[in-house]
Design a protein around this nucleic acid. Structure first.
Lengths: 194, 194
DNA sequence: AGCGGATTATGACGGTCGTTATAGCCAGGC
DNA sequence: GCCTGGCTATAACGACCGTCATAATCCGCT
């Protein structure tokens, strides 16, 4: 893996994640990413010699890691607290951007792969989703949920929140997130007692 | 609203919905849509004089209506049957296309609107999501669910299924849909008795 | 001071984009 | 016959795309 160590590099990745979460992958050009990070175009190909594909992959992983860190931290107080943090995280993004931004991982996941082979960014998206689910499932098991039940609930939470963010963007309202939050909260609470 | 009545017109709309569900809106060009529908490029601007925006809007509404019809039909046998049909519908699309296609409504919903005004296609997406939720919620109420509970569950179902389809595409597996299906099924079944 | 590798500046390559204009086709009604 | 109006063919417009090559610049080290 080609890795420079400038701090401009991380600025580019973070900016790319932000732009992808707003416009989608193919609607975001490398020139715009560079400009958004106040970096010259040549720098992007210096830090990311494999081009747009590499940049997208790292943007997905960047977001994945940051969300996972937040999740890991908050899950120490239990699954309900973790769920609340997960919901609050996306709620803040949606509200702060006036319903313009969503999740870059989802954005990458919904673009068709070329016929021959699957792009690295898509694989990275799958790994990020898996990581988030694993964190939730582990916490659920630790609090008394059965293994299969924990896995199903974790998948439901990640999928529901991702989908709800998209609903909020379309409707330009946070009502879907509030409704989903209520239902998921009751579900999780019920799963760690019975 | 400008409306011709050729049958080639509908072919273009259906093809556009399919392509958008695979690649996303901005990655799908009008030239490709025309070619995919075996129609000349000039025809698209003849039938859809407002250009890509109009074509996207009609593609969203086309999918929305077709799914709503299926949902309405199956919901006559109750919310559980409706949920099953909804899940089966998306499962078939994902599997039949080898995880290449998803939901065009979601695809449109996750693209940033321009700063000044919001595009018609995004508004159409919001209306489609609302219609699907309304159908589910009405059926739940008819089978004994409280009004607020029905609305929350309907939102959760639509959001969870949309999100799960994206998860399936990333992971190239239907396991997420199977897990989500199990959880939603139990939830719905429980909500129409107690 | 001077060297060397990391970073940037600049410009170009072929290609595709959305959109428009214009001229041609070809059915059906007078 | 001919004309009208829906449809198509063809070409072009300026703009942007991902990517690459090359030369200039910077900066820490000896």
């Amino acid at each position: 893996m080609t890795r420079g160590n400038s701090e401009a590099r991380e600025r580019i990745v973070a900016g790319a994640a932000d732009m992808i979460s707003r416009r989608g992958l193919s609607a975001t050009s490398i020139r715009e990413m560079a400009k958004h990070a106040e970096a010259p175009l040549g720098s992007t190909y210096h830090y990311f010699p494999e081009g747009k594909q590499q940049l997208a992959t790292e943007a997905v992983r960047y977001t994945g890691t940051r969300v996972a860190q937040c999740l890991r931290r908050e899950l120490e107080a239990g699954p309900v607290a973790g769920l609340h943090a997960f919901l609050a995280l996306w709620r803040k993004i949606v509200v702060d951007t006036d319903f313009r931004a969503g999740c870059p991982v989802l954005a990458v996941a919904v673009e068709e792969p070329p016929t021959d082979e699957l792009p690295a960014a898509l694989t990275a998206a799958a790994e990020v989703f898996h990581e988030w689910e694993s964190l939730l499932a582990a916490s659920l098991r630790e609090h008394g949920a059965e293994t299969e039940q924990a896995a199903q609930l974790a998948t439901l939470v990640v999928a529901a929140v991702e989908g709800t963010v998209a609903l909020c963007r379309a409707k330009r309202s946070v009502q879907p997130l509030d409704r989903t939050a209520q239902q998921l909260q009751m579900l999780i609470a019920g799963a760690i007692e019975g």
